[in-house]
């Protein structure tokens, strides 16, 4: 199947979504995503940031689609033509979606642990406006603990449903979900149940904003002062392939490895995530390649210079590109 996105043609297998096809072409045409997650089935379609304009439906039916479609849940048709960054109307529509996502977001980035690796920050940097037109009180919720290691700060949530999908697809017996509706809808657990299972920590990784944070890492350090290292260990529950975030010699947190779209490659268990925070627990593979545009690339691998790994070389070898999603 041939599909053309922003003038770039690619051949993809049947059943590929527009988003997947765009990602195959490269970051220069890939739409931003907030709720889609490649490792989670049925994710996507909620945030509406990945909307694209279909200017030609298919070779058989060349009519354009009347409305923008969500690229993450729309499969390509042979001969389809899609506009993303080349359509000014679409970019305007996307700015609208971003504005909606931001009007009730507290914008407390200076005290938020997610800052520096936040999807919403990137999104609003690329598609947001300088000023808000929203003059009303923003929505607020009480912070709650869901499980002994996870803090839920609902005020920051953008209701992407990713954590719900994690609970549904990685574990049996989901105890949290969305309650209430409309703009007072919130993620919550069933009555006072705590999320307690071996893979609950992945909710933190998939959360695009700072709504779900790791209580063992909260307020310890800004992420751009920590330096990631890829490491692994033998784990009987999960793949054991993780990313260790160092500050000096100390491992401050452990996360799953993210691909170049910032999505977990493989989910990891809570034992790896919360209980193994010593260098001795792990076999270190080397520094994680980081995009030059990421704020995390700003500093040096202090004290770990002894490893002498050429980050840039490794980055090129792994095929990492400039993942700046700006048009």
């Amino acid at each position: 199947m041939k599909v053309t996105i922003d003038g770039k043609e690619i051949e993809v297998p049947k059943g590929t979504t527009i988003l997947e096809a765009a990602r195959m072409i490269g970051p220069e045409v890939a739409p931003p995503t907030m709720c889609y997650y490649s490792n989670l089935k049925t994710s996507g379609g909620y945030c509406r940031t990945c909307i694209v304009k279909v200017t030609k439906g298919s070779a058989q039916n060349p009519n354009p689609m009347p409305k923008p479609v969500v690229s993450c849940r729309t499969e390509v048709m042979d001969g389809m033509e899609v506009q993303n960054y080349t359509s000014p109307d679409l970019l305007e529509a996307r700015r609208g979606v971003v504005e909606f996502l931001l009007i009730n977001h507290p914008l407390d980035c200076p005290i938020c642990d997610q800052a520096g690796e936040c999807f919403l920050q990137d999104l609003s940097y690329n598609n947001g406006t300088e000023k808000t037109r929203y003059e009303f009180k923003r929505r607020e919720f009480e912070m709650i603990d869901i499980g002994d290691k996870i803090k839920l700060h609902m005020t920051r949530c953008i209701l992407c449903y990713r954590c719900v999908k994690v609970a549904e697809q990685l574990t049996n017996g989901r105890v949290h979900g969305v309650i209430n509706r409309g703009d007072v809808a919130e993620i919550s657990t069933y009555i006072t149940q705590a999320v307690d299972n071996d893979f609950s920590g992945n909710m933190i990784d998939v959360c695009p904003v700072g709504a779900l944070t790791d209580k063992t890492f909260r307020f310890k350090q800004r992420v751009w002062f920590t330096k990631p290292m890829d490491a692994h260990r033998n784990c009987d529950k999960c793949c054991g392939k993780v990313r260790l975030w160092y500050k000096g010699e100390e491992v401050l947190r452990v996360t799953a490895r993210k691909n170049k779209w910032d999505e977990s490659e493989e989910f990891i268990c809570n034992a790896c995530r919360f209980d193994h925070k010593k260098t001795a627990d792990w076999v270190i593979e080397g520094p994680t390649p980081i995009s030059h545009h990421s704020v995390i690339s700003q500093n040096h691998y202090e004290h770990l210079n002894a490893l002498k790994v050429d980050t840039l070389k490794r980055q090129k070898a792994l095929g990492f590109m400039n993942i700046d999603k700006r048009p």
């Binding site: 379609g45 909620y46 945030c47 509406r48 940031t49 609208g96 979606v97 909606f100 996502l101 009007i103 009730n104 929203y134 009303f136 953008i158 209701l159 449903y161 969305v178 209430n180 509706r181 409309g182 703009d183 007072v184 809808a185």
Partner: peptide
Amino acid sequence: CGQCSPCREGTGW
């Protein structure tokens, strides 16, 4: 229903 952002945030606004 609060599922997708334009409606969830826009209607309240």
